[in-house]
Design a binder for these strands. Structure first.
Lengths: 248, 248
DNA sequence: GTCTATACACCGATAGAC
DNA sequence: GTCTATCGGTGTATAGAC
């Protein structure tokens, strides 16, 4: 059951015909309704029937736009990653130019804010994988991860020379890991020295973990103070990082 | 629909009767089957029918031991937290007395190892909350969090005086947060100064985030090297921590 | 305590008429 | 492109016989 060609369909060079525009509009409407349903009932409750109900259609109308439930889910996941990355980027972009709060912290707070504003969509991306849904290999997840990495990489390491980054003082990396990281397809602009890549992953884990615990309610006993704990953790992360980067 | 008294049933002072022992044995058998089902098909697929099928029973037999699906889930969640905490504790306990790897890192690796060994059960605890399942307030989750906190608290801060911990150098904590943390019911043995509590939460997020990303497949591009990245991150965490604790 | 039978809901997917 | 009708499956929960 191939699931290509139907939803996004790389547009041909020619301008979209009326039929195509209508189709795109309908597709968009379905996506919005599906997103709304997830927001209200959680990712696990997503079903074509429920979306159809919400739209006043029958299921078969939907099958005309999405060949299967998986196709719809894939579209939603892709859009989720896009929106999250855009939110992080927007947070960085809209920060005042000489803000006292470091850009990396701003980016992290953008990540957290999006997750808290859209907990169910965040679950769709980073929670338990959906029952009987297999994400397409080399699919949206991979691409999205790279885009996010690129943003955080820039905010963490911009302004340092490659030599500095290569000399970052971390706990020992085995030669095997070192060469592996060195030959990893680079997400960002320039190549990233292995110690920097390792710290990037560590930082992502740190950031992500605090957000996950909060969104899934495991730190609710902190109440409103979760924001400040998060901020403190990210500021500490940054100073610890700078502490590990040698002077030029 | 009250769900008490059925599964664990605080035992009366008298020794358990034959009937009670039989009941306990059957309950245990059901729990094992349910755990097996989760391990094979994931938490979302858990249903009384499926468990009953696996046991060669009918659903109604199960209703005799668990008044509802929620009751069964609660029992499984509780057991999950217990097992995870026990695994972390066991990792610390079985470490060689003068091992070069710090006890905190050992504990963290115990956490990671359990999650990787039981990814579906880990999902049950820390993944997307189950559809239509509401954990009992002040329930197993809260208790379990405290137990885990106590372990990590010990490994992070044992050997330091309270004065040292109170003088930990973190990014600024607002007075409001400071007093909030100070009056938080203490999870561990002694009272924990606010900066230490804040760093404990930060560390838990760090640890948890890396594990979550790995278990849910978001860092699979690192392959076997995820273990080493994790180890490095935890070692860095520990040295950064010591860097923030002033000498006595 | 375990069974059959049943009520009532949900789901994905397909066939074929219009 | 949308509909009705349908197949074959999932689930929670209850009633009542044995």
């Amino acid at each position: 059951m191939p699931a290509e060609e139907h939803p996004p369909a790389s547009p041909p060079a020619a301008p979209p015909s009326l039929r195509e525009r209508r189709r795109a509009a309908a597709t968009q409407e379905i996506l919005d309704a599906a997103e709304g349903h997830i927001t209200e009932h959680g990712p696990a409750a997503l079903s074509l029937r429920a979306v159809a109900r919400g739209l006043g259609m029958t299921v078969q109308a939907l099958y005309h736009y999405f060949p299967s439930r998986d196709a719809l889910v894939t579209a939603l996941v892709t859009k989720g990653y896009d929106d999250l990355a855009a939110a992080v980027q927007a947070a960085v972009d809209t920060a005042p130019p000489h803000s006292p709060v470091p850009r990396l912290v701003t980016a992290a707070e953008g990540y957290r804010r999006w997750a808290i504003a859209h907990p169910e969509r965040f679950q769709l991306l980073y929670g338990t994988p959906l029952r009987d849904y297999a994400a397409p290999a080399e699919g949206p997840t991979t691409q999205a991860t790279r885009r996010m990495s690129a943003i955080f990489e820039r905010e963490m390491f911009d302004g340092f020379t490659e030599a500095q980054l290569a000399a970052i003082d971390t706990a020992t990396l085995s030669p095997s890991l070192h060469t592996y990281l060195a030959q990893l397809p680079h997400f960002g602009e320039g190549p990233l020295p292995p110690p920097a890549t390792a710290l990037l992953m560590s930082a992502w884990g740190h950031l992500h973990g605090l957000v996950v615990l909060e969104v899934f309610g495991h730190t609710s006993f902190l109440g409103d103070h979760q924001a400040e704990i998060f901020r403190m953790a990210m500021e500490n992360l940054l100073t610890d990082l700078h502490h590990r980067i040698p002077p030029p």
